[in-house]
Design a protein around this nucleic acid. Structure first.
Lengths: 153, 153
DNA sequence: CATTAATGTTTGCTTAAGCAACTATTGCTG
DNA sequence: CAGCAATAGTTGCTTAAGCAAACATTAATG
């Protein structure tokens, strides 16, 4: 195993951990500002988008993905259901499971929010070449799958 | 400006935003687990490390960097001060400013936590070449500075 | 130079996330 | 197949983050 970092000489500024924390907080606030104008939170967006893309069908899937608290997510889903954007449907195969699905209005909402997000992302990535974005995407994907594996242990 | 993303055909899985959120939540929980055993939170670590590396001298610096709430940070600093790891010193030049400095014990604490962090990072980056880590570091740095610029507006 | 604006910090209140306990249901094991 | 472990989800409680107002101090402006 390559020792990318060593305790002696370790500096925050050049650490992947530091950079991910900063890019996350910067970007999520950037989006949070945009969403708050439309009365949405970042987490609500995450849930809607994740369901839309079929990356998750249940609350537990989402929680695993984002390491989010189950109890907290139940309440986020409550909000979205109350607002008529998301539907809960008890699974017939496994009656413990509640399957999530966007309502028509929920779909429309996601679609209306996407341009906002896309615009912000493009602005953030202004100055990046297509190759750089591709490489960043690949490397982050690799990191995610690595850490995911590690966390399962 | 290159349109890296377009509203039509936008998918979460391949989005930088999605990937950063996931890598952040995965990595911060990974570290949170390690820290909790030593009775530290991730944010406490961030503050100590940021001060150690001279990336910030005041609470406001830290808040700007991480987009963290000032009120919340005041209380984190309270904790660290109570535990004798950090000292507040009212600036003589600008009496609004409170300068932060690690105590001797604070320094020791940071140094003792670094190996834990380094070990986790190396594990997360297992499978990465040196070049890949270098490139990921560069690209994240570029992203951070871009978004930072954008947020100042 | 007096007034206003801006900055750094702190404090009280509100909201959301984290934790633990509980129910319901399913899978596993002797 | 009985009993125990595991899983999905919900709910109450605790802790931390976000927000807004306050105070002290400095910078800017007319």
């Amino acid at each position: 195993m390559i020792k990318h970092y060593k305790p002696e000489g370790y500096r925050a500024r050049t650490s992947i951990g530091y950079l991910i924390k900063r890019s996350h907080s910067l970007m999520s606030e950037c989006l949070e500002v945009a969403f708050s104008q439309k009365d949405f939170t970042f987490m609500q967006w995450v849930v809607l988008m994740t369901v839309r893309d079929g990356l998750a069908v249940t609350a537990t899937d989402i929680c695993r993905d984002y390491r989010h608290d189950q109890g907290a997510l139940t309440r986020v889903i409550d909000q979205l259901e109350t607002r008529g954007l998301l539907e809960r449907q008890r699974s017939t195969e496994d009656r413990r499971v509640v399957q999530l699905a966007l309502t028509e209005q929920g779909s429309k909402t996601v679609e209306s929010l996407i341009p906002v997000v896309v615009e912000r992302l493009n602005t953030a990535l202004d100055g990046f070449t297509v190759e750089e974005v591709g490489e960043l995407t690949r490397l982050l994907g690799k990191l995610v799958s690595r850490v995911e594996l590690e966390m399962q242990k």
